[in-house]
Computed example of a mutant assay.
Amino acid sequence: MTEASAGGARRHGIVVGVDGSDQSLCALSWAAQEAQQRRTPLHVITAYTVPVFAASSMDAGYATLDDQVIREGAEAVLEQAVARLADSDVEVHPSVETGDAAGVLLDLSEEAELLVVGTRGRGGFVGRLLGSVSSAVPAHAKCPTVTVPLACAPRLGQTDLEVPRSKQAPVGPEGVEKTVLVGVDGSEQARSAMLVAAEEAERWGYPLKVVCALPPFTGSLAWVPAPLDRDALYADIKEQLDAGVAWLRSHFPNVPISGEVLEGSPIELLIDATRTAWLLVIGTRGRGGFAGMLLGSTSQGVLHHAKGPVMVVPDTQDPRLEDRKNFGPMPEES
């Protein structure tokens, strides 16, 4: 069982951050569908901070007035977001919070099943997420975080949201493969992501595909003292992947699960997979490849260029990880 399921339903259900931008409204739509599937409440949150004025002659009551004006604007944004859910039967809990957007999200992640955010927006939640605190939320959240790009609008039926040409290659609902993908690299963090991905696939009744990338030969391998036997390396990775898939099947016998070793750049493969995959899942960190790259130097490129939802899974204390060694070879933890 995952940390969330082991301790019972988390009080906050699904938390989605909105700021009135098309990006956040797209994330709201995805979050509502997920909440409906999970039969859990949806908490729609917006956050604001009060500017600090240094003028010593400022009237003492001005700060209070400013706070009220800003809060009223935040409440208007929230009302518009909630109005979009009028036809949904999801239990909605709207809330205006004060404080830094990332800090508010991280606090809520302590009791949330899932955090959902757009890729960028006006400011507040979405604007800050991929700004100066780009790695704070997915790297430090206590629950999985899903980032939903605006390119997802057509597949979600959100025809009133404008997708810029630079973000296109979106597909409609008919072009989405009803498959959950999870990127792995042999690390325990990736195995945690596999468990969460399998739970998501089981929840929706979709098959799960476990993928691992074998990067092309580059100068970074020049230090290897002996010629690199790529075929042997591929066979070794494939054997470990197959063992991991067998382990996962033992815990999810009703989910169709397959594994594949892909040739190419992990990041490029990851971005390409998001074009049509219903959801791509990855761990917060790992040895390299998918999980290790996500919150490394290329994290901005991955999240900015993804065409579909990406779920980032934090480390979990899951007892199911203990029996992985019984199913075949696995990398030694460094």
Score class of each variant (00 low, 15 high):
Q33K: 15
A112N: 08
V184R: 03
E97F: 06
W247Q: 01
A190S: 15
L214S: 01
T145W: 01
G131K: 10
A76S: 14
A83H: 12
A153F: 07
L241I: 08
P173S: 12
E199W: 03
G17V: 07
A153R: 03
V196H: 04
R155Q: 15
R320P: 04
L114V: 09
V82G: 04
R10N: 10
E34A: 14
V176Y: 01
G131H: 12
M194P: 00
V117N: 02
G103C: 07
Q158Y: 03
V180P: 03
E202R: 10
G301L: 11
A226W: 07
V196N: 00
H251Q: 07
P329T: 01
G121L: 09
A306E: 01
V261I: 13
E199H: 10
A273M: 06
F217W: 03
A232N: 07
Q68T: 14
A4G: 06
E263S: 14
T40R: 12
P41T: 12
V182D: 02
L279T: 09
P207Q: 09
F53W: 10
R11E: 14
L228F: 05
E97V: 12
K142G: 11
L161C: 02
Q23V: 07
W247L: 01
L279K: 00
A193E: 00
E239P: 00
S258N: 07
R155W: 02
D22E: 12
L42C: 08
L25N: 09
R324H: 11
V180S: 02
G127R: 09
E162L: 15
H140C: 13
V148A: 07
I271K: 15
T147H: 00
T49Q: 14
L262Y: 05
L181G: 02
H43V: 11
H304M: 13
R155A: 15
H140F: 15
K209W: 04
W30H: 11
E34R: 15
V137M: 06
T276Q: 11
A32P: 00
A169T: 14
P94D: 07
G13L: 09
D242A: 14
L65I: 10
A32K: 05
D59I: 13
G103L: 09
G219D: 07
V90Q: 05
M311I: 09
A31I: 12
S57F: 13
Y48C: 11
R120M: 08
D67A: 15
M1V: 14
L280Y: 01
E72N: 11
Q23L: 07
G124R: 00
R39P: 00
A169C: 08
T40D: 01
K238P: 00
V15R: 00
T179I: 12
A169Y: 10
I45Q: 06
V44M: 04
F53R: 10
E111A: 13
G283Y: 03
F53I: 13
V50Y: 06
S220W: 08
D315P: 06
K178G: 06
T147W: 00
L294P: 05
S166Y: 05
L161T: 08
G288Q: 05
G124N: 05
K167A: 15
W204M: 09
P266L: 08
V16K: 03
S220V: 10
